[in-house]
Simulated assay, not measured.
Amino acid sequence: MRPLIATIRLDHLRHNYLLARAAHGGKTLAVLKANGYGHNAVRCAQALADIADGFAVACLEEALQLRAAGVAAPILLLEGVFEAAELAEVERHRLWLVVQSEGQLRMLEGANPAEPFRVWLMLDSGMHREGFLPQHYRAAWQRLRDSGKAESIVKMTHFARADEPGVPMTQAQIEVFDAATAGLPGEESVANSAGMLCHPRARRDWGRAGIVLYGANPLPAGYLQGDALKPVMRLSSRIFGVRELAAGEPVGYGSNFVTERQTRVGLIACGYADGYPRLASSGSPVAVDGRRSRIIGRVSMDMITVDLSDLPEAGIGSEVELWGDAVSINEVAAAAGSISYELLCNIKRAHFAFE
């Protein structure tokens, strides 16, 4: 088989969840949307089943996949429902749901469940993507309570810039949240991954651990020092071709890389069709048999060329780590002008191995 392997270390996943939960100090949902950020949501849920307080997904179909696999823990629908008909499935499968708009609120008011729903009511505290504006939030909360359709109401919001610790917007959003929800009973959920790690005022009843679960630090260098987080996915391939080029020779599409010296080039089985970012071309780090090197030339659809000039022992069959232990996914994302979230979610054609 094509030697592109995404190795998923489930023990690292458990380690990261426990670290995030301890940092938050309260109950914590493990966010498994987008197929567990590309890690296989079912396998991740099963690995966390005995320690997680619950899970969160984007939508109903993701929740139903987990229920079909036997996941019995609470599951929150972060986007809520899109049609009133979905509420029957929410009730049948004992799902929790976010209400973030007037339309969703009306759906609940018009529903006739045998038992009331567990609702998380979203406040727009400044991100302006979803949720009720502060001046409308209290009325929405009152309508939910008066409807009798909500067993409980968790007050929640979402941060726009929690991964930028020096930016005051997060503290401003917390203040907006506290003012808008003052005096309203019920639990609260404010912190995403970055909020859990470095914004103490955001640590409330429920945290929502997303990217931190998978071992990619959401914070800039200097925060969460050392080996606290462990990368869950290790993406690796192997060299299947080697050639020697003289100085002045182009490599790859567009000839945008030209050798400056005699260069030994390795060809590896991975490309943008596999989910590796095309823009992470010349200079993006890799590790060949554990030693760091770099990509040279453009990333092709299913092949990448790497520099073996200073690695005389490397050759056909040598392992190449694209990200994982020797190469941080954040480094690769920076080289591609992207973020670790996107890279992880895009891995599609690799063979997945679970440890």
Rank of each mutant, 00 (worst) to 15 (best):
P3E: 12
L4Q: 05
H12C: 10
R14W: 01
L18S: 02
A22L: 13
G36P: 09
Y37E: 07
Y37I: 08
A41D: 03
C44D: 14
Q46T: 12
A47I: 06
A49H: 10
D53E: 13
G54W: 08
C59Q: 06
L60M: 07
E62P: 01
Q65P: 14
V71M: 08
E79Q: 06
A85M: 10
H93M: 15
V99Y: 03
V99R: 00
L108Q: 03
A111C: 09
P113K: 02
L121C: 07
M122Y: 02
L123G: 01
H136M: 12
A140P: 06
D146E: 15
S152G: 05
P165M: 06
T170E: 00
S189E: 01
A191V: 09
G215C: 07
A216Y: 05
A221K: 12
S236F: 14
E244D: 14
L245C: 05
G252E: 00
Y253E: 15
N256C: 12
F257N: 04
V258C: 02
G266V: 00
G266T: 00
Y276R: 00
L279Q: 07
A280N: 01
S284A: 06
R291S: 13
S293Q: 03
R294I: 08
R294C: 11
V299C: 02
V299S: 00
M303D: 15
E313V: 13
A314S: 07
I316M: 08
S318C: 04
W323Q: 05
D325R: 15
S328Y: 13
A336K: 03
G337Y: 08
S340M: 07
E342S: 09
A350R: 02
